[in-house]
Amino acid sequence: MKYLNEVWGSRELLFNLTSREVRGKYKRTVFGQLWSLVNPLALMLIYTFVFGFIFKSNPPPGSPSGLDVFPLWLLCGLLPWTFFSSVVSTSAGSLVANSGLIQKVSFSRIVLPLSTVGASAYNWAFEMVVLLIAITIAGGFVLPWLPLVIVAMALLAVFAAGIGLLFSIMTVYFRDTEYLLGIVLQFWIYLTPIIYPISLVTNESAKHDGLLGTPITILGLYELNPMVHFTAIFRELIYDNRWPDTNEWLICVLWSLAAIGFGMLVFRKNERNLAEAL
């Protein structure tokens, strides 16, 4: 509790660092904030061409929304993923990038990785507004689900912050972490039902018995990935326009609490040695 009070006491510094990240990212660019849409839109076009036209991913229409637009279905999973990967990758290098500040000034170091979370969340909120408008134009009815979408966004932000805190400490002691993380995230996106429906995994799992004679199935292992459940919630709220399964909510809450709790614990234990380690 004492540590949480310290973090709360640094809220003004956290706000200033977040504002610096937001203002500095697109400083002196012509299109400014619109650049935050370029990466997810480019990925959407590539994945739509490869998995929508060549390999025919064919996700089921939204139920009960009736939406059957692959690019929008894709974005409902892609935008949460790009936010998560952005938070984790930028948080990982936040302490090393600010080593001079850490070595010269005394302050709560946790605000550095948390400020990258705030900056990424700002851009993500802008992208999500555009997606919600596009879903509405296509015939979806997102407005009643908007409060739950915000709750889901908050849960994912907490989960991403916890993972980001862990990797920020790892990067201080093992500088290869940043490069290894890029590879991990590339594998992770394909182990998450973002560019293909989870029904493909379910069907493949049903064809096989338990692995090595155990009750463990392919689907069971697959669902250990927390992003599977976050993606499901966003798709069901935004694309399907229906209440997500209660178990999905519970799993996401537990993962968020576990990630932020463990992340803060590890960060707290290593915070005093950061100046020397850097």
Rank of each mutant, 00 (worst) to 15 (best):
P60C: 08
S63K: 12
P64F: 11
G66S: 07
G66W: 08
L67M: 08
L67G: 07
L67P: 12
D68L: 07
V69A: 05
V69E: 04
F70P: 09
P71A: 03
L72W: 02
W73L: 02
C76A: 12
L78I: 11
L78A: 10
L79C: 04
P80C: 12
W81R: 01
W81L: 05
T82Y: 04
T82H: 09
T82G: 00
F83A: 00
F83S: 01
S85D: 06
S85E: 10
S85N: 06
V87G: 03
V88N: 05
S89G: 11
T90L: 13
S91D: 07
S91G: 15
S91W: 14
G93F: 12
L95Y: 11
L95C: 05
V96H: 06
A97T: 11
G100E: 05
L101M: 14
L101H: 00
L101C: 00
L101G: 00
I102Y: 01
K104N: 12
V105R: 01
S106Y: 13
S106E: 06
F107Y: 13
F107G: 04
F107Q: 02
S108D: 09
R109V: 09
R109H: 14
L112Q: 01
L112V: 15
P113F: 13
P113G: 13
L114K: 03
L114Q: 03
S115M: 10
S115C: 11
V117F: 09
G118P: 12
A119S: 15
A119F: 06
S120E: 10
Y122T: 11
Y122W: 14
W124L: 00
F126Q: 01
F126Y: 15
F126E: 01
E127G: 14
